[in-house]
Simulated scan of single mutants.
Amino acid sequence: MADKYFTYKGILFPRLDYSLEALSYVENEFQVQNDDVFNITYPKSGTNWMLEILSLIRSDGDPGWVRSVVNWDRAPWVELQTGLEAALKYPQPRLLCSHLPIQLFPKSLQRSKAKIIYTLRCPKDILVSLYHFSKLLHLFKDPGSLDSFLEDFLSGNGICGDWRNHLSEAQSQRFDTIYQKRMQGLGMTFPWD
């Protein structure tokens, strides 16, 4: 397993899609433009759903562009090498996607007026979707049992880090409270309760 993954600033990434060089470049050198729009999600949280909405908004509701251009060309993934190369050539205004947690985002974001669309999803739904996605596609390590996958997920050892702290530590406390109430309504509890 060690050869299939690497850790960047404490977060686990699969070598298949990510590289240390690309992540470092995105964080330290990528220049965010004022008119960029970022579609940011934790994995399996509605990325493609939101991309379809943003693509239709960008094309004034004309589905022709959406039907004729694949999603990774409409909105390159900045943290992937091929996506980064596409993003650097992308005409403005750029529509970009990412699963990166906000602390690994380009430092130039702070100096820009770029828009961030952050899609949240119920963590129970993320867990189930990511578990089955991992079992089906074998892009990640074998998730094992649902119980062991749940333990990794709750401890923050999943792909792209801890879902609770994906956006920021300040926001995570608010999200935890919201999700905690929703999950309790479903009869679920979390180890941090």
Rank of each mutant, 00 (worst) to 15 (best):
L20R: 12
L167Y: 10
D35Y: 08
K89F: 02
H138K: 10
W163T: 04
S168I: 14
R174P: 00
G185P: 00
V32N: 06
M50G: 06
A75D: 06
L20P: 06
W192I: 07
L104Y: 03
L100C: 07
C122Y: 01
Q33T: 06
D73K: 12
A2I: 07
I57H: 03
P191R: 14
Q184C: 00
P143V: 09
G61M: 14
Q92D: 06
P93M: 07
T119S: 09
T82R: 11
Q173S: 14
L186Q: 15
L186H: 10
P91G: 07
L167A: 15
V78T: 11
P14M: 12
L167Q: 11
Y8V: 03
K141M: 06
K135W: 10
N28F: 07
G64Y: 03
T189G: 04
F30L: 14
P91S: 10
E85W: 01
N28H: 13
R182D: 00
K181C: 00
T189Q: 10
H99A: 11
P123A: 03
A86N: 11
Q171W: 12
S129V: 06
C160V: 06
I116V: 15
H132Q: 11
W77M: 15
P191G: 12
W192A: 07
D152L: 08
L84N: 04
P93F: 05
D176N: 01
Q110L: 14
L84W: 02
M188N: 06
E21G: 03
W72L: 02
P101T: 08
Q92P: 09
G61T: 09
Q173H: 11
R67I: 05
S98Y: 02
R174K: 15
Q92L: 14
D3S: 12
L104K: 04
R15F: 01
L80A: 13
S112Y: 04
F140H: 09
I102F: 13
V78C: 09
Q81N: 09
S59F: 11
W72Y: 11
S98G: 08
E29K: 05
P106Q: 10
